[in-house]
Design a protein around this nucleic acid. Sequence first.
DNA 1: AGGCAGGTGGCCA
DNA 2: TGGCCACCTGCC
Length: 261
Amino acid sequence: MLDGGQSFRWSLKSGGIWEGVFGKNLVQVKLSESENLRYRVLTGESIEILEYFGQSLDWDMISDALPWRSDPQLRTCMQEFPGLRILQQPFGETLFSFLCSTAKQISQIKQCCLEVANRLGEDLGCGNYAWPGWDAIAEAGEDLLRECRLGYRSRYIWKVAKILSKDQEFELRLASEGYPQAKATLMQLPGVGAKVADCVLLFGCGRLEAFPVDTWITKVMARRYNLGGWDTAKVVQFGQVHFGSAAGLAQQFLFASERAH
DNA sequence: AGGCAGGTGGCCA
DNA sequence: TGGCCACCTGCC
């Protein structure tokens, strides 16, 4: 899940150790088979690590709410990736990274996020830099983003930075809204369509009912659920109705299985 | 060498 | 509403 397109600030070091940056935290973790999280805080707070990895949530219960009993396709994917979770990432950098993600491959998204952090972010030690925040991005301007190879996304990201640096209450307001309204609110931001909005809601707002549909999910839903030729919005609707309150977790199982396929 | 990638917004009927 | 197409950049 650290390399599954949820977050773009993790890299695999030697010995199965992953090193990652989120918020003001620089951490190393080792994910074991027993699903125990072993971690080392290089910079930051332990409590934030636990929250980030969703340790306060009852994943057995959440997984059990999925329709695996009646859905052999889903059951297969779940068995293939035991221990898969949804990360609970900070809102701002989640929105930023998914604005960067459109029509890009994971390796390129990682490169862009790294570049922006290196140029504008706070030094966390060991050559790692935090996500800089909207203020710094708004101040840096569109050209700097283009230098970080964000291309046409630069204009959107810069506009969003200007909007959100002037609206400190945005995240709080979003949290008070129901899922459909929260999605609509996010989609009012430039560069945020249905897919980016659902990724942000799922990975950065704890809305497990969000069901982001990208080309991988379109493919896997066509293959496993016979939805070939379906309109993307229809696939989203199918996913939410069929998988229910934890549709986003189902999405991750399907996504992981399709990428491995 | 040209099409396309983990989309979105704008324009057209 | 539904279908195209440009938009940056890098990889196949």
